[in-house]
Design a protein around this nucleic acid. Structure first.
Length: 717
DNA sequence: ACTGTCTGCCCC
DNA sequence: ATTCTGC
DNA sequence: GCAGAATGGGCAGACAGT
């Protein structure tokens, strides 16, 4: 953070232009997140805004050409240095600088930014070649250690994630106050409070108006005061949506909502339990000019995917004012068709909420208002918040008032648009004065009410019966807090969080992969299966990586593979072996060979020759020392899966796995033939709960049981 | 033209 | 999405 | 209490290879 702040300070001191500051912001934080990689070079919601992705291939090709090195040389360097930026420098040293006819112009943040922006716009065939050429241009122009940083910037995943909103922009804010204080005649140093305040202003401004250029412009023109006024919610510019925190019981939920912030109503806390529809979040804007746009939770522009939503909102708006809505789009199927198929008496039509999986089959491109109803999946919109009306920003209004304004401003339309179902209640117990609660004043007034918990429980049941995931429970007196952080005044209570609800399966680990990063010494994820004792078959259901403690990983990796995986297993060849000897590792051959197989992403072509065959079926061995008793050369007999794990295991025990829903899967083959002739069943959001030491293979969930659970779930809808 | 594989600030 | 760990 | 990591299912699209 200090480094970033100092970098911005020096730019500000030299009166850098807005375009340079903007470029620097993006270049300091090239990766959106560790999940997807990809480079962000402009706001996603902007016209043509799309992330830039540069393949490893393009980077290394450009690097080879720029340095004149051979591929073998590069690999050798990589094995020594383990970091591609350093490799780039070393290769340039070694190869000597290539002589160019014309010296390229020195790089600036702005010029690099512009080039990368250009790359993001490429498409069609031959893009990789063009990308390589343009990267080459940048690499040739790089001086000194610029080369190292340039190469690192190209990578989709930098070793350390630096986030634009969490690190870079706050640093810019800090730099601004520090410089301002220094140049003012009165004050020399900015206080810690001033710095914190500045960071906050910038963070908030960006959450409300995620536009780096607008932020930089405001800062340069009028400092933090200008950021406050200019970087606020605008119709047509999506803001960070407000997020909710998960909560696992109604009692806990009440406590947390009451504690979120003090009540302004004599200790009484009113809350609203809204249905949590299982669809896609949508932030819908209508500008003053009347243009309607739909944005995703990640601020992507989805307008072209949902022309029918746009039309519905236009029809249902009671006025011509600008607005910003928060809503959920869900898939629906017409009710009459379903009933007709069952030969029931025709009902007056209407629609039913369909599963999320149905929504996801909707076309993403070329959806028109005309084909939306026939060619694409039909959808219904559930509104739950209004953040802007006319030129009034409603973010600070309490939810009750925002909701009232929303209901004034829009009219529901059958099958197409409605308000999210909501049940309002007091979270606090009403401790009447008659009971003489005078000696315990505020504490008693703020106690969670037992009847409130009961109301919530019932609402939860109803929401599930109504094809919802559960509840969103909100403080009725709370503001809307656009943020990358989750707020305490919105909590989500999903059926699968609650002990007694949701699907819990008893599955058998049949395979696994080597983990990466902090899990690189362990098996992660694990491949889980049902067991059919009649047929002796195992059908894969899901991979699991969530819910395991480090201790569990360690113990069970040893149990299944005989030892932990070598930490050095990542490097590919001789270099790894050399290094291994010097290390503390008593690198068993087993682990070493495992490392090789995992070497470059896919690997796995060379077949396992593992030391321990699948000889022992005895589950008894608590595998502390010896060879792995549980690893197999190939899938155990009877295994059916579309997945291909790096390691296969002898099925031998039962683990409890929880999930939210059961889905029809193209990859997992459990219960194949029972619901669909080709496809099996899988689990959405799978996570490990605990080992079932009390259960044997024969007690694992069977394909028949799984199919029955699936059918019950679909009937509920 | 067809199929297979991989990617996505994907959506959850 | 979910979950765990380290700060 | 929060940020950061490491990954889940599954879809339409895009691109590569035949």
């Amino acid at each position: 953070e200090t480094i970033l702040t100092n970098a911005f300070r020096s730019m500000l001191a030299r009166a850098a232009q807005a375009s340079e500051l903007e470029a620097a912001c993006y270049l300091f934080a090239p990766a959106k997140d560790a999940q997807s990689g990809g480079h962000r070079m402009r706001p996603d919601w902007a016209e043509g805004g799309r992330p830039l992705s540069i393949s490893r291939g393009s980077i290394s090709s450009a690097l080879l050409e720029a340095t004149g090195a051979s591929r073998a040389e590069m690999n050798r360097m990589y094995n020594q240095l383990h970091e591609i930026g350093e490799v780039a420098l070393a290769l340039r040293e070694r190869g000597g600088r290539q002589r160019l006819l014309r010296l390229p112009a020195p790089l600036t943040a702005g010029s690099v930014h512009r080039t990368l922006l250009g790359l993001a716009d490429l498409s069609g065939s031959g893009v990789e070649k063009t990308k390589t050429q343009r990267l080459l241009g940048l690499l040739r122009a790089a001086e000194g250690s610029e080369l190292k940083w340039l190469v690192r910037t190209f990578l989709p995943h930098m070793a350390a994630g630096i986030s634009l909103e969490a690190s870079v922009l706050p640093a810019l804010g800090a730099a601004w106050v520090i410089q301002a204080a220094q140049t003012s005649s009165v004050q020399v140093r900015a206080t810690a409070d001033e710095i914190r305040e500045a960071q906050d202003v910038v963070r908030t401004g960006y959450a409300l108006r995620p536009d780096v250029r607008a932020l930089v412009d405001a800062l340069l023109e009028g400092g933090l005061a200008r950021v406050r006024t200019a970087c606020t919610l605008h119709a047509g510019v999506p803001m960070q949506p407000m997020l909710a925190k998960p909560c696992t019981s109604t009692e806990e939920l009440l406590k947390r909502l009451i504690g979120a912030f003090p009540s302004s109503d004599n200790g009484v806390v009113r809350i609203s339990a809204e249905f949590k529809y299982d669809g896609q979040r949508a932030q819908i804007h209508r500008s003053a000019a009347g243009e309607i746009r739909v944005y995703s939770r990640k601020l992507d522009d989805m307008t072209s995917k949902y022309p029918d939503v746009v039309a519905a909102v236009r029809r249902c708006a009671r006025s011509q004012q600008a607005f910003v809505l928060d809503a959920e789009i869900v898939a629906v199927v017409s009710r009459s068709t379903g009933d007709a198929a069952l030969g029931e008496a025709a009902r007056p039509g209407g629609v039913e909420i369909a599963a999320f999986q149905t929504l996801s089959t909707r076309k993403r491109k070329h959806v028109t208002e005309v084909n939306a109803a026939s060619a694409a999946v039909a959808v219904k919109l559930f509104l739950f918040d209004l953040l802007l009306r006319g030129d009034e920003v409603l973010l600070q209004w309490p939810l009750v008032q925002r909701r009232a304004a929303m209901r004034e401003e829009f009219a529901a339309e059958a099958d197409v648009l409605d308000f999210a179902e909501a049940i309002d209640l007091d979270a606090t117990a009403i401790v009447s004065a008659a009971h003489g609660a005078t000696d315990m004043p505020s504490a008693s007034a703020s106690a969670p009410s037992a009847s409130a918990a009961a109301v919530l429980d019932e609402a939860l049941q109803r929401s599930v019966a109504g094809s919802c995931e559960g509840l969103m429970v909100k403080r009725l007196d709370g503001p809307y807090e656009p943020s990358t952080k989750r707020s305490d005044s919105w909590l989500k209570l999903k059926k699968d969080y609650v002990e007694s609800m949701g699907d819990s399966l008893d599955l058998v680990p049949i395979g696994g992969w080597r983990g990466s990063g902090r899990k690189s010494r362990w098996i992660s994820p694990w491949l889980m299966a049902t067991f059919d004792p009649e047929e002796g078959t195992f059908g894969s259901v899901c991979r699991v990586m969530s819910g395991f403690s480090d201790k569990f990983y360690k113990e069970n990796t040893i149990r299944y593979l005989g030892s932990e995986l070598s930490a050095l297993g990542k490097a590919s060849d001789a270099a790894a072996t050399e290094a291994a000897t010097e290390a503390e590792q008593e690198a068993e051959e087993d682990a070493e060979e495992v490392g090789d197989a995992a070497s470059d992403g896919e690997g796995g072509s060379d077949l396992d020759v593992c030391g321990a065959g699948g000889e022992s079926d005895d589950v008894g061995s608590q595998g502390g020392g010896g060879k792995s008793a549980l690893r197999l050369h190939r899938a155990a007999p009877g295994v059916d899966t579309g997945d291909k794990p790096q390691f296969w295991f002898q099925p031998s025990e039962v683990w409890e796995i929880r999930g939210a829903d059961i889905t029809i899967s193209p990859k997992h083959m459990a219960a194949k033939g029972l619901v669909d002739p080709q496809k099996g069943l899988s689990l959405r959001f799978p996570r490990f709960m605990k080992k079932r030491e009390d259960k044997r293979l024969q007690d694992a969930t069977t394909p028949q049981q799984l199919a029955a659970m699936f059918l019950k779930q679909t009937q509920q809808r």
